[in-house]
Nucleic acid binder design. Structure first.
Lengths: 151, 151
DNA sequence: GCTTGACCTTCCCATGATTGGAAGGACTAA
DNA sequence: TTAGTCCTTCCAATCATGGGAAGGTCAAGC
């Protein structure tokens, strides 16, 4: 199977398959004489595993751990669970952040007439002088969660 | 005021102030003879406006629009409201995505013993063969929201 | 006046996951 | 043989941000 077929069968783009290979998430494949990558059903299975993990928002680093646990018959389920729960924690923190933003904005928008006049509580809030500027570096590595599922 | 003081007063790092200048979000400042950037209280006020917008998850592009509306005394509040509400929509979509991930994972984790044995429903779900691979390109530009407030 | 240390300057690089595109080779069907 | 589709590698861009190097500037203390 060529890379394009493996991509279609797994839901992971050819580009990403090559990328995953380049960073070592998946091993280098067999090549044809002319250099084409060749994939087996087993490889496709692995790619699907990766795709599902990605759909759940796991980072590539976490996916690497999950894949190796998947392939380890002696794994302890607590190791898998730990990764999952840590990720849940990150997701929930992120959800809370976004909810705060959304609720602030909705509140402001509700009080904005939204007509042709310039008066606007949204702008006023953004421009307001109160509220501390907050330290430039609040807590550093807090959200290592980038574009989650921005596919 | 030097850039460092403006950074401390506004909550926007020096690095970011230079960056915002380079992309045209804020105008080029006056410089001292030796090339140091000089900021006024008014500039700091603008930087705070930007920081607040950023805290609410607006993209730099949206912030540019907000700043220009802020400075336009003839603005229509509906233009501001439109930007805010569009952003709320993006935030809520993203929240829903993350909630789905979290709830799937929590459900799986609840059914995982989390002990030393290998049996694990989380891994099994990731490895399961059912469920369509889903087209590689579902809907393109859906989440233009990158690292939201990953500061 | 000179040294020290804190600040400033520009420039380049890295992040994470992903996509786009160019240049060129390989394969397949007509 | 040719057209068209696939593959290859390599490089660049995204978005907002931080890190760091190399070098210039400034203020305080001696």
């Amino acid at each position: 199977m060529n890379i394009g077929q493996a991509a279609a069968a797994s839901g992971v783009s050819s580009k990403m398959i090559r990328y995953y290979e380049s960073i070592g998430l998946i091993p280098k494949t067999v090549r044809t004489e002319s250099g084409y990558r060749v994939y087996s059903d087993h490889d496709v299975h692995t790619l699907r595993f990766i795709r599902r993990s990605r759909d759940l928002g796991f980072s590539v680093e976490q996916i690497a751990d999950l894949v190796s646990l998947w392939q380890d018959r002696e794994r302890a389920s607590k190791d898998v669970k730990a990764i999952a729960l840590e990720h849940v924690g990150v997701l929930e923190r992120k959800i809370r952040e976004l909810q705060e933003m959304a609720s602030t904005l909705k509140h402001l928008a509700k009080n904005c007439h939204g007509d042709a006049r310039p008066h606007c509580p949204i702008i006023e809030e953004l421009a307001s002088d109160d509220a501390a500027p907050a330290p430039t570096k609040p807590d550093a590595k807090f959200g290592a969660l980038g574009k989650v599922a921005a596919r």
